[in-house]
Design a protein around this nucleic acid. Structure first.
Lengths: 175, 175
DNA sequence: GTTAAGATACCGACCAGCCGGTTGGTTTGT
DNA sequence: ACAAACCAACCGGCTGGTCGGTATCTTAAC
């Protein structure tokens, strides 16, 4: 076996991003963070892009888990999706922004996100009798997500809470 | 006077981004694109960041002009804003994505966007008797914008058109 | 139980290309 | 003549990736 496994490396990479920002996500930095030499790191991820991909997949998995948890807790599809988006908005500070930066520069990384999103759209289309409205609610939440994560919206703004509330009440009315 | 002015340089930079992507937006490339040496370029923009800032401001100005045009054509505030967002979504291919990448890595560039957005929120708050709903409509459009620009949503999707339509009908009902 | 052999994990020095920015000079406009 | 515009060679740091080697583990034959 190995002293470190891939998931530990991904966590280390996330840590680096959180502490130093996307621009400083360097192979040396990641290696140092998880107590590995660059050679050792490269042994696990042959290229930086593959590491980015793993980070993206990890993030997606986490978000999915959040949504699933809320879904079993009784929320409908849209409500649980909204919850997971807002949750993601709260806890991690700089990680989402950095992932956005990475993705914006390399569209190839998006593939997994794309399929997840397509799945979600299908589920919505077949679950609600006004799927467009349901879609729009999620899109609004995603808009808030980007606005918040990129720093356009202040987090202290009470407007933000009101909008969040409103989204939930609107989505509760969905059938 | 000079053979080239700042706006020409900004246009050249946009061209580079559109052709080669954000990662390849290098001072040499921009200089070459507008027939200037790197030294000559640096004479106009002392640092790369200042060039990025100019690009951002130019983009904001364009989007504002679009919204203003629609506003004088009779649309209400939200409608004109939606129009300008969708317009931006259509015409430029890789530019918005690259600007997003730049901004995500350097939050300082966001300041102008931030104030514009704050202004817009204020106007909305005092113009509609359900400002939250108006906000949500714009946020949904922005969500679509990000989804489309980052490549998560396919542009051929008929769902996209339906959502756009729906947003306009909803915003037409605003008072 | 021991050992030989192969594979896997890891190390760290090194390299080559890229890129932002500097500098010292030349041209061009007034 | 003076300044602004511009040029082109150069520098230095950073970074992704390579490479030749060592250490640790697995397997299996004896």
């Amino acid at each position: 076996m190995s002293r470190v496994d891939k998931s530990a490396i991904v966590r280390a990479a996330e840590e680096v991003v959180r502490e130093k920002g996307a621009r400083k996500l360097t192979l040396d930095a990641v290696a140092a963070q998880c107590g590995l030499s660059k050679g050792g790191l490269i042994h696990h991820f042959r290229t930086k892009q593959s590491l980015l991909k793993a980070m993206l997949e990890s993030a997606i998995a986490r978000e999915d888990a959040g949504a699933a948890a809320c879904a079993t807790a009784g929320g409908n599809l849209v409500v649980s999706r909204l919850s997971s988006i807002f949750e993601l908005m709260e806890d991690d500070e700089g990680l989402p922004r950095s992932l956005i930066a990475a993705v914006a520069e390399d569209p190839a990384l998006l593939e997994p996100v794309k399929v997840k999103e397509a799945q979600l759209r299908n589920e919505i289309s077949s679950s609600y009798n006004d799927p467009e409205l349901a879609q729009l609610l999620i899109l609004a939440a995603q808009g808030m997500f980007f606005g918040r994560v990129l720093g356009v919206m202040e987090q202290g703004d009470p407007m933000l809470d009101r909008l969040r509330e409103r989204l939930f009440t609107l989505s509760a009315d969905l059938t």
